[in-house]
Design a protein around this nucleic acid. Structure first.
Length: 487
RNA sequence: GGUCGGGUGGCCGAGUGGCUAGGCAGAGGUCUGCAAAACCUUUUACAGCGGUUCGAAUCCGCUUCCGACCUCCA
């Protein structure tokens, strides 16, 4: 691979040269959603971020196997291995089977991500589909001496693990502080150590999602599924493990411990964490009730939203910030992003209309292309990439206006550059593209208006323009002809 | 309380020891029947206080404010 891709590794807390374990193959595992409720915009940001990463790795020519799980079992309300099962609780609330809940929100999740134009992962395994693998992994961890069973529940022995390994390697927290700050053990707790977590949980009689195991009827703990499924599909060691930053401290820390205890190896070479979407400075979260649902986002039917925004405008908004920075949501910010997105798309629409007129042009397109790659190679810096692409937008507009002359090879290079970065890497598409029929109707309307203009019948031409404007179609006259777009 | 990350112009958001990020908004201009778009020019910055340095928004220290994680969340 001829590139200098550098990415930030949470494990080492610095940017590192990206060197896959087995070039050109790349294994990437990303923690997917727990499908017991609608995804909100914050969830989507994470998956859009990893979509950008996936797309860029593909663009560089890697053969990427992208695995993203669906958590459909074992995720309790309290992470201290207590509380109700999320699916059972929701099922009771909606008077449905737990798997109906899973199906409903899995479909909703897929619909939402399709609207954001994310590429589907190579494999999307579910926790319930891998109970056997999880049981096998728990057995191996026990055999290796890092887990113990109490009354049908199996716990991971964190204190034993810390004697040989660095449990907090991912977050660099001090174990003593964690021990002092962890919630008091309640009376009925069976755990030996307060940091121990459940690998397998005994099902109470009323618990619906249940499977037989060597320790009795029960269900898997939340963390074990990712360890079991990532090693099944990507091997005991793979390249990239990703997820939201909020997962690093608990979920990913436990994943590393489980894999290490089972396979005697670090599961992933690079750990990547995406930052949170915030609203008025506070994290968008399910419990805070400040999250937006798809329908609310698109229609603007939420108290915090002034109007609706298209999924592509929102994707552009997200990509204008770096994935490791928090991104603050506001109507003003979305409005600005929407306009910038339209400016970019209008330039893309102009691209096929451009003509090479010069024998030789002095546009330095190769320098611009180098800067685009440099931006993405620097830890997937999409905001800088977008800034560079706006350079190209200005070029495209100037060429169209006849203010800039371009020769054939350079014009082709510009087209290819935009194709690659706007469509392939950023994954943006024009959400206002219309059917051929509609395009043809508009051609007729515009030619009628231009005839009226030619005859200086401005009353007629303005009536046409105003009529279209009332429908949300904006006309733009120029020497080269009349363009239109929807507002 | 512990750990970590931030405070950049009207808004969003990159950058990071010396060279205009970019988008949106504002101002002026070119073009145009008018409008819009486009193009050109342009105003407003790096939380505060010290220190290092020829030079700091960028490094160091202190102060202050905000956020995240430590409890379910991407």
């Amino acid at each position: 691979m001829d590139h200098q891709l550098v990415l930030y590794n949470t494990l080492t807390r610095k940017k590192e040269q990206f060197e896959p374990l087995n070039t050109p193959f790349v294994g990437m595992y990303v923690c997917g959603p727990t499908v017991y409720s609608d995804v909100h915009l914050g969830n989507c940001r994470t998956f859009v971020s990893f979509d950008l990463i996936f797309r860029y790795l593909l663009h560089l020519g890697y053969k990427v196997r992208y695995v993203r799980n669906i958590t459909d079992a074992g995720h309790l309300e309290g992470d201290n291995d207590e509380g109700d099962d999320k699916f059972a609780k929701k099922a009771k609330l909606e008077k449905l089977e737990p798997m109906e809940i899973v199906q409903k929100y899995t479909l909703g999740f897929h619909d939402m991500l399709r609207l954001f134009n994310t590429l589907p992962p190579s494999i999307e395994p579910t926790a319930t589909g891998h109970i056997i693998e999880q049981i096998e992994m728990v057995k191996q961890i026990m055999a290796n001496g890092y887990a113990y069973e109490v009354n049908g529940t199996v716990y991971f022995d964190v204190e034993k693990y810390t004697r040989e390994h660095n449990y907090t390697i991912l977050t660099n927290r001090k174990l003593d502080d964690m021990l002092n700050n962890t919630r008091e053990l309640n009376g009925q707790d069976e755990k030996r150590g307060r940091l121990d977590f459940a690998l397998w949980i005994k099902a109470k009689p009323e618990h619906i999602m249940r499977w037989p195991s060597p320790w009795g009827i029960g269900f898997p703990g939340w963390h074990i599924e990712c360890s079991a499924m990532s090693s099944k599909y990507l091997g005991e060691q793979f390249d990239i493990h990703g997820g939201g930053m909020d997962l690093a401290a608990t979920h990913h820390t436990n994943e590393i411990a489980q894999s290490q205890a089972c396979n005697h190896t670090q599961p992933a070479k690079y750990w990547m964490h995406t930052n949170m979407l915030t609203v008025n400075g506070a994290r968008m979260s399910k419990s805070a009730g400040n999250g937006f649902l798809p329908a609310e986002l698109f229609t603007g039917s939420h108290p915090l939203l002034d109007r609706g925004y298209s999924p592509m405008a929102v994707r552009f908004f997200m990509l204008q910030a770096h994935y490791r920075s928090t991104l603050d949501f506001s109507n003003e910010a979305l409005d600005a992003a929407d306009k910038g997105y339209r400016r970019l798309m209008n330039a893309m629409a102009l691209l096929p209309k451009l003509m090479a007129t010069a024998k030789k042009s002095d546009i330095r397109i190769d320098e611009l292309r180098d800067r685009c790659y440099a931006a993405m190679n620097d830890d997937f810096n999409s905001p800088v990439l977008i800034a560079e692409l706006f350079e190209a937008v200005r070029m495209i507009n100037s060429i169209y206006d006849g203010k800039l002359a371009v020769d054939e090879p350079i014009l082709e290079a510009i087209k290819l550059l935009m194709q690659h970065f706007v469509y392939d890497v950023l994954g943006l598409i024009d959400d206002q593209a219309d059917s051929d029929d509609f395009e043809k109707i508009m051609e007729v309307v515009i030619s009628l208006r231009n005839e009226a203009k030619k005859n200086k019948d401005y009353t007629a031409s303005d009536r046409i323009r105003e009529g279209l404007s009332a429908m949300g179609i904006q006309l733009k006259d120029s020497k080269e002809g009349t363009l239109w777009n929807k507002i």
